[in-house]
Computed example of a mutant assay.
Amino acid sequence: MIIKKINLYAIRLPLKQPFIISYHTYDDMPSIILEMETDEGIIGYGEAVADEHVTGETWESTFQVLQHTLAPKLIGENPFHIERIHELMDKAIYNAPTAKAAIDIACYDAMGKKVNQPVYQLLGGRYHDEFQLTHVLSITEPDTMADEAASMIEEGFKSFKMKVGTDIDQDIERIRKVRERVGWDVPIRVDVNQGWKNSSQTLKALRHLQELNIDWLEQPVLADDIDGMVRIKARTDIPLMIDEGLKGLRDMREIIQKQAADKVNIKLMKSGGIYPAVKLAHMAEMAGMECQVGSMVESSIASAAGFHVAFSKKVITSVELTGPIKFSKDIGDLHYDVPFIRLSDKAGLGVTVDKAILEELTEFKSIVE
């Protein structure tokens, strides 16, 4: 089986409501869908959702990298030769993990369809039967966030991830209001998305968080401030998760060496796809660190890819891949059993793409062959 043609679709996924985090407000999610055709008629799908604040890639730049740099290099290659494919991509361009993730995911989808097995079977087999979904609360007014949390409890959600990272005093009020509304037994995770900037600001906030029963605190300092994470970790018993500060193997090695976090958030868009994400999970396991698989708010395609990684690894103990639930229209059919996700045993990613919706949401496209 060889790669015969690659079709690229630049789309915008419509959100039910704006998604607000510390550094940006999203009214929709720009995404690139990659359709890989093989000489045997097998179609593999991949996806790239770029975030310029995390990897330095944009929607437009990622499309150009895929169209002109990566896709032409891979025509004629075997999707099963994933180590070679990553080497070719790495030689073609430095970094650009989101663009590479789209290729990687499409290769795994094609591999799974070729052998008629779900992707998790290619990664060591299924370990988890299900994961509990966590509802993500965008940054709004404290009472509004508390109201949303209460309504989500009624819909079946049993845990929350709160986006904060603006003004510390307001952030503390947001967390306090949600905690009071949902009660003390409901898990709450707090994601600062680098918004508190440095360890001094974070330590100031932690004086108030200690009493609010927080599951963990995620990325409270700037991404490259690994030493800031070390300082915070030494001064609190609230578990720390690193997200934007972990992209690839070099970051993971430094995090492990400095014991800079208790947990790591692995995202396929940061690491370059399924293959390198699994490597990060193995490194974390050797260091005794739990992992989460998160997302950049992706469609059914990349969300399913993340789930296949998570379901195959014991060290991955939580997931945050709820993009399809947030969209008013999606190109795929990944199924959620709220408040759980349970993967099917369908071949490849297990996602059927609606070509009519894909064309409807496409703003521009290209063919490489």
Rank of each mutant, 00 (worst) to 15 (best):
I43N: 00
G44R: 07
G46E: 04
E47I: 01
A50Y: 00
A50K: 01
E52V: 13
E52S: 12
E52P: 08
H53G: 04
V54H: 00
V54F: 03
T55W: 01
G56E: 09
G56W: 07
T58I: 09
E60W: 10
S61T: 15
F63W: 01
F63I: 02
F63H: 01
F63Y: 11
V65N: 04
V65K: 03
L66T: 02
L66G: 03
L66H: 05
L66N: 02
Q67F: 14
Q67W: 10
Q67D: 11
L70Q: 05
A71R: 06
P72K: 12
K73V: 14
K73C: 14
L74M: 13
I75R: 13
G76W: 10
G76R: 11
G76K: 11
N78I: 08
N78Y: 13
I82C: 08
E83N: 13
H86D: 06
E87A: 14
E87V: 09
E87M: 14
M89H: 04
K91P: 02
K91C: 13
A92R: 05
I93H: 09
I93A: 14
Y94G: 11
N95W: 13
A96F: 08
A96K: 13
P97K: 03
T98G: 09
T98Y: 02
T98C: 12
K100M: 09
K100W: 04
A101F: 03
A101C: 12
A101Y: 00
A102I: 08
A102W: 00
A102R: 00
D104E: 03
A106M: 07
A106W: 01
Y108H: 13
Y108E: 03
A110F: 06
A110K: 06
